[in-house]
Design a protein around this nucleic acid. Structure first.
Length: 774
DNA sequence: GCAAGGTC
């Protein structure tokens, strides 16, 4: 009798072999893939770990050329399933050929059931052996023995629900991505891909929604009244109960009534102890959030580092939903290694308790324990074995979190005072840490003490100052990666293992980028989301994932057949597709702008600025017939500005046209131009945008004399062009200095090469026409 | 070349 078991991964195979065999198993290998053999009760067991999914869907090859295949066709073509990891398929066949019984022992979830079915489909080509399912929620000895003693039937519905997800995700992703990419390429020259997916798009949607809030935010003035009080020589602050007061008259009224008061009364006082519990154990999402928030490591990188720490045996399996430890979890075994190092004191305290108490969370994915340290190690050891940047920081976080989790709460003494100044109420709170508890090993969250003087109820305090300060409300902040992960988690976007990859996809596509810990949307991402929001709004919101999820949940529950849910899902996708294609012109018009815009704005020589008509990019265009400034939105936006036919063009980046908000272009050395305003010196905004270097009033009219530089010479000219001029030295750098003192002109400073600088007044009518050495 | 889900 030969029994063959397939698990989701090698690690699980080894562990299960160890448990079922009681430790006595052989490690063999089939074409490099580990297989664990042992004998038990006269039966021969062979356990092999898969590598997650070993098969995957794709469209038949004839639909793989984007240009020759209308993306809409993909809505009706069924993708086909192929083996992606050949060596595993071969090993499965070899093992199954000799099996009398096959057992699927992958993770107990949708994808796990599906992965098991992949192995089954390969095995059944060579074997007629019955196929059973071992279902367990953790890799503990108790659960595993129990599961293998009570084998179940494989769950067709569970497996097929994952199948439906795969097909719907691919159908939608491929059709929409190809459609948009090809459509944009009709207008803009780009190799880039505009991708859409049921997880990546709503992920970008979250970032977009926040950006909308920021851009649409209207700042309001408010006033805040604060009091500086003093009792027995110690100062403390209080804030008026009105908080942010938006009515200036009201704030002023309060302020006037009490500003000259010298005394206040402590009308209420409460003291209470407050405890802050340690955080729940780390599941993947929580780990990624904290790595981002505390260490500034991106979710993608953090997961990779944790993976390597796991493979090197330092920490436990990093992909887990569970944030509670099993009742029989052996804390002692994991703690003992830390009882001599930096955490000696705390760990010994934990170990000395009659029973180790842990603050557990409530999520149980029935998969793996929370992330915890397997092995105590010092920095050198960790860095030697895992050569990745920040590996120590990540390990240190996991260790500290694990220990903190077993420690008592941090305890604070909190005092609240209510100070009355006349009839106005000021609130103030103080907080003093009485017992650091878990915070002693968790430096990432610091709570500063805030001291208050020890003042009793109904005592009088001095009022040193009452202030009434004006502030403005500020727009919401950009999302941090940690917040984005929280939103994704809450809305069921992605899974513990895939959430970071959806964030990465958006970055790769140029939809958003991270700046420090926060996420900034890019032009392409914003425009795409804005376009989708007005054509296929469901895509931008988590609803799309929820709709697909509901369909496949029905398959899992047996409420719908696989075929029916696939049909419904495809119908939904078709509906969205038709909305998308009816909005094609509108979307493409905007999107093409952002694609070319990216090239344009990096083209420093020709980039002018934002088009005042449509918001896209203005740049200098050179043609055979001449040159002009045009908008990247052409042909939709026909905004142009003419340019002089000759003369070198320089975009003056430091100056800005105040009239239309575009750049100022300097033409040759002869004139100054502001785009769209004609020659700058005839525009009514000239003095604002490109202030002439005025030296002083014109002696002939009410204009001003300014330095006019031309290609060949320079001289003083009148801003009114009244005809009065005055010559200037030909050599050297001219800068305008402070007022002369003896007349109403400004002095100029002349610095010629190899000569000392001179400062002088050049007004011919000035009394002191003597150069001063400086 | 397209998605999202596993795992290494």
């Amino acid at each position: 009798m030969s029994i063959v078991v397939f698990t989701e991964k090698n690690k699980a195979a080894a562990q299960i072999a160890g448990i079922l065999s009681g430790g006595g198993f052989n490690r063999a290998s089939i074409d490099g893939i580990p297989v664990y053999d042992f004998k038990k009760n006269g039966k021969e067991w062979r356990i092999m770990g898969l590598s997650g999914h070993i098969m995957g869907y794709d469209f038949p090859p004839e639909y793989n050329n984007w240009k020759e295949c209308d993306p809409a066709v993909l809505l009706d073509i069924d993708p086909v399933k192929n083996v992606l990891k050949k060596p595993y398929a071969i090993a499965i066949s070899k093992l199954a050929g000799h099996a009398d019984e096959l057992i699927l022992a992958c993770d107990f979830d949708r994808e796990g059931e599906n992965i098991g079915f992949e192995a089954r489909s390969i095995a059944q080509k060579v074997s007629k052996a019955p196929v059973k399912r071992a279902r367990f929620s953790s890799l503990s000895a108790g659960e595993i023995n129990q599961a293998f003693e009570n084998l179940l039937e494989p769950d067709e519905n569970l497996a097929m629900s994952a199948e439906a997800r795969q097909i719907l995700d691919l159908r939608m992703g491929a059709a929409f991505t190809r459609f948009l990419t090809l459509a944009v390429r009709e207008r803009a020259h780009t190799k880039g891909v505009i991708s859409i997916g049921p997880c990546q798009t709503p992920t970008c949607g979250f970032v977009y929604e926040r950006e909308r809030l920021i851009r649409d935010f209207e700042s309001k003035d408010f006033w805040k009244i604060e009091g500086l009080f003093s009792y027995s020589g110690k100062d403390f602050m209080g804030t008026h109960r009105g908080g942010h007061i938006y009515d200036k008259a009201k704030a002023d009224g309060i302020f006037r009534r009490i500003k000259d008061c010298k005394k206040g009364i402590v009308a209420k006082k409460s003291e209470k102890e407050s405890a802050i519990n340690p955080p729940y154990p780390l599941n993947t999402t929580e780990f990624l959030k904290r790595a981002s928030k505390f260490l500034g490591i991106s979710p993608d990188t953090a997961l990779e580092v944790a993976e390597q720490l796991y493979l090197a045996g330092f920490t436990s399996y990093p992909r887990t939903e569970t944030n509670k430890y099993a009742d029989d979890f052996d804390f002692k075994a994991s703690l003992i290694g830390f009882s001599s190092g930096e955490f000696r004191e705390q760990v010994l305290a934990i170990l000395s308790q009659p029973e180790i108490r842990c603050r557990n969370g409530t999520r149980d994915g029935h998969d793996h324990p929370p992330i915890y340290p397997i092995k105590a190690a010092n920095r050198q050891e960790v860095e030697k074995n895992v050569r990745m940047p920040d590996v120590w920081k990540v390990y240190d976080l996991i260790v500290r979190h694990f220990i903190a989790n077993l420690m008592p709460p941090a305890v604070f003494d909190k005092t609240r005072l209510e100070v009355h100044v006349r009839d106005e109420i000021f609130d103030t709170t103080g907080s003093i840490m009485k017992d650091a508890g878990w915070l002693a090993v968790y430096p990432f969250e610091t709570k500063n003490d805030k001291f208050l003087p020890n003042v009793e109820l109904n005592k009088e305090v001095d009022v040193k100052k009452i202030s009434n300060t004006k502030s403005r409300t500020t727009p919401p902040k950009r999302l941090t990666e940690a917040e984005l992960l929280t939103l994704m988690d809450k809305n069921g976007i992605g899974t513990k293992a895939t959430a970071p990859s959806h964030i990465e996809t958006n970055k790769k596509r140029g939809y958003f980028e991270t700046k420090g810990k926060s996420i900034a949307i890019l032009d392409t991402g914003f425009t795409l989301m804005e376009s989708l929001d007005s054509t296929v709004p469901i895509l931008v919101k988590p609803d799309i994932r929820a709709r697909i999820e509901a369909l496949i949940q029905d398959v899992e529950d047996g409420q719908k057949t696989f075929e029916n849910s696939l049909e419904e899902g495809s119908h939904l996708i078709k509906e969205m597709y038709s909305q998308l294609s009816s909005g094609k012109e509108q979307i493409v018009m905007k999107m093409a702008g952002t694609i070319t815009d990216e090239n344009i704005s990096s083209d420093k020589k020709n980039f002018i600025g934002e088009c005042p008509e449509c918001g896209r990019m203005l740049r200098i265009i050179n043609t055979d017939k001449g040159r002009f400034v045009g908008c990247s939105g052409y042909p939709t936006c026909k905004k142009t500005y003419s340019l002089p036919k000759t003369g070198a063009l320089t975009v003056m980046r430091s100056k800005e046209c105040k009239k239309e908000g575009v750049a100022i272009v300097k033409v040759g050395n002869k004139y100054h131009w502001s785009v769209g305003m004609g020659p700058c010196f005839t525009c009514d905004s000239e003095k604002v945008c490109f202030p002439p270097d005025v030296v002083g009033p014109c002696p002939k009219c009410d204009g001003s004399m300014f330095i006019l530089t031309t290609k060949d010479t320079r001289f003083l000219a009148c801003t009114n062009r009244c005809g009065y001029t005055q010559s200037l030295p030909k050599e050297g750098r001219l800068t305008i200095q402070k007022k002369c003192g003896q007349c109403d002109w400004k002095q100029i400073r002349l610095k010629a090469k190899d000569k000392d600088a001179t400062e002088m007044c050049i007004n011919l009518r000035c009394a002191s026409r003597r150069p001063n050495r400086s």
